[in-house]
Design a protein around this nucleic acid. Structure first.
Lengths: 129, 129
DNA sequence: GTCGTTGCAAAGCGTTTGCAGCCTA
DNA sequence: TAGGCTGCAAACGCTTTGCAACGAC
């Protein structure tokens, strides 16, 4: 049976409060404010369990460790800002990707990562030009 | 200046002959047939150089080490088979992704990974049903 | 009291780096 | 011959695991 521990709660709360995908290290830092002795191994073990029960989702980024977010209600994608490195949730989807595939292929899932400049960084860049 | 070494050639040839993205380990295995003493560090150093000069591209996969391919002539995406784990090149692109973004965001690049069953595995699965 | 969970430290894996020797230009 | 490139082994960063102690039920 699954037990209700301080550590597990702190980890889930950190993800919930952040509202954006966090790295294991970020989760550790946040959760340690609630449970000072918390170790990184416990973060990984909890993430693994949560992932197995589909409560959290891993977001993979090129050349970086994955970030984790609470399982979203609806299908969505992400936008990574090339300047501030923040990862945003995009509530839209290109749909109809099956037609990109050659005949015979069956599409089951898809991952889309958009990259560029977020609103903030776009604005800052324009000002400095 | 850049020198023309056996090792570098073996690595480039392995990528060229394979015609699909390879992991560093796969490259090592293939290139060692030409240059037996070849070390993994040399594979990584060559990949790094080739990547810097944009001759090769890294393809990132969730939960796996990246695979490398010779820089493709044209923009494309990939399809990962959920059964045989082979990675295929898809010469198509959803285009017009900017409209998925909120106002103010600037789209610079995008990565799309399609997953499902390749032609072969789709067929095998149907037969066994 | 049981036994799932934890913290620590050690190990694992993919990747990078320091260094002395090698080999291309 | 100079100095870029190599192989080896050690180091690295992130993640997982073994183990004894802890604590939720």
């Amino acid at each position: 049976m699954v037990r209700n521990t301080q550590q597990g709660n702190a980890i889930r709360q950190a993800l919930k409060k952040a509202g954006r995908p966090l790295s294991a290290q970020e989760i550790l830092n946040l959760a340690q404010k609630k449970v000072p002795g918390l170790g990184i191994a416990t973060v990984y073990r909890n993430l693994k369990s949560l992932h197995e029960e589909s409560s959290v989702v891993a977001v993979e980024l090129p050349g970086q460790p994955p970030r984790w977010e609470l399982a979203p209600a609806k299908h969505h994608h992400h936008f990574l800002c090339n300047i501030c490195d923040k990862l945003y949730e995009i509530n839209a989807c290109p749909e109809d990707l099956q037609h990109l595939l050659p005949a015979g292929y069956t599409l089951e899932e898809h991952d889309l990562l958009l990259r560029g400049l977020c609103d903030n960084c776009s604005r800052n860049k324009k000002q400095s030009e």
